[in-house]
């Protein structure tokens, strides 16, 4: 597995290259700036986790990679290249060619993300028919082998099942089979296990890890759960207020987080061994995305904030190889030069 980081991306062209990606939504009351300048690189076969709480912009970022945000109300700017294609310049017709064979997505709640009145088999086969132009019968045969690939027992019978007839775990497996149906090079997963039971969650995570390794896809997970990241990610990017505030290989991020928000979040996460201790908490509430502060979005809640933090958005700087932090207090600019300009 390639442990490439933005600064040292060794492979000639990364699978995903996003620069200064911004997404905003027009609402009747205000403009919501959900994503404010995200840079992402992902190598082929690499697995990245975007970690954040609600309103951090993590899901919006993921959808922007597919240009899947509601087209009428959304403004997306910046550069986005996936598999050597300029996604920002694509027409609707080109986008529909891009979605499926190049990039596909797994959603959080398979029950609502699958059409209730079509069978699982139909929903998998229709994507194959659409993109490969093969017969419905051949597509159905492929759908069957996909269900077997995601380890659905008695797969042939499940082809004719409707989503509500399957258990939560099987539905998510069917969703994964659907996402894999056109052999995508990039798989996006939006909280794929949040709606599942604990014993099912680990099965799905292990399945995704196995499939990624076998099929050599790049995978971007979005999660609020550092535990999920610890099981599947090579690298983790922590988002806050629509920006990446810290990015590092997963073991470094878990062992030695640098950004005050990341350490706060990890400290607040209940895990074995916190019993009897008082959980550290982050005071205050997440920022209003319609009125982001001029400086660091976390500064109003940060116990270590300095006057400078409130004035300008600090740059994302590399502290050690592959470990980037957007905080002038823990990582002063004079030590390291900014990257990715």
């Amino acid at each position: 597995m390639n442990m490439a980081s933005p600064a040292t991306a060794a492979s000639p062209t990364p699978l995903v290259r996003a620069r200064d990606l911004c997404v905003s939504f027009a609402t009747p009351r205000a403009t919501v700036n959900a994503v404010n300048g995200v840079n992402l690189d992902l190598a082929q076969g690499e697995s990245l986790c975007i970690l954040g709480e609600s309103g951090s912009g993590k899901s919006v970022t993921l959808r922007a990679l597919m240009r899947l945000n509601p087209p009428k109300r959304t403004v997306v700017t910046g550069e986005l290249n996936v598999a050597n294609q300029d996604v920002m310049q694509m027409t609707q017709a080109q986008l529909s060619q891009y979605r499926g064979p190049v990039v596909s997505m797994i959603f959080q709640e398979p029950l609502s993300a699958l059409d209730p009145v079509f069978t699982i088999g139909h929903q998998i086969a229709e994507a194959i028919v659409r993109h490969e132009g093969i017969s419905r019968k051949a597509a159905r045969a492929r759908a069957l082998s996909l269900l077997e690939l995601v380890q659905i027992p008695s797969a042939a019978r499940r082809l004719g099942a409707y989503p509500h007839e399957l258990s939560g775990g099987l539905r998510q497996r069917a969703m994964i089979a659907m996402a894999l149906s056109c052999n995508p090079r990039l798989l996006l997963a939006d909280e794929p296990t949040t709606a599942l039971d604990a014993t099912v969650q680990i099965q799905i995570l292990l399945l995704l890890r196995k499939l990624q390794r076998e099929l050599g896809m790049g995978v971007i997970f979005v999660t609020h759960d550092i535990g999920v990241a610890s099981e599947v990610a090579d690298r983790v990017a922590v988002m806050y207020g629509g920006r990446v505030v810290e990015e590092a290989p997963v073991e470094i991020l878990i062992r030695s987080p640098r950004h005050p928000y990341t350490s706060g979040l990890l400290g607040a996460t209940v895990h074995a061994g916190t019993r009897g201790t008082r959980l550290t908490t982050i005071p205050g509430a997440p920022p209003d995305l319609a009125e982001l502060p001029a400086g660091c979005a976390f500064a109003p809640r940060c116990t270590r904030a300095e006057p400078g933090c409130h004035k300008a958005v600090p740059p994302l700087l590399e502290v050690t190889a592959g470990h980037h932090v957007r905080c002038p207090v823990v990582c002063p600019a004079r030590i390291q030069a900014p990257i990715n300009v």
């Binding site: 597919m66 899947l68 986008l95 529909s96 060619q97 891009y98 979605r99 499926g100 064979p101 596909s104 997505m105 959603f107 709640e109 609502s112 993300a113 699958l114 059409d115 209730p116 229709e126 994507a127 659409r130 993109h131 659907m178 149906s181 056109c182």
Partner: peptide
């Protein structure tokens, strides 16, 4: 509904 987003995500045409 979410499943419409899924369908767009599969690259289906409007007719689909």
């Amino acid at each position: 509904q979410d499943y419409i987003t899924t369908l767009r995500g599969k690259g289906l045409r409007t007719s689909g």
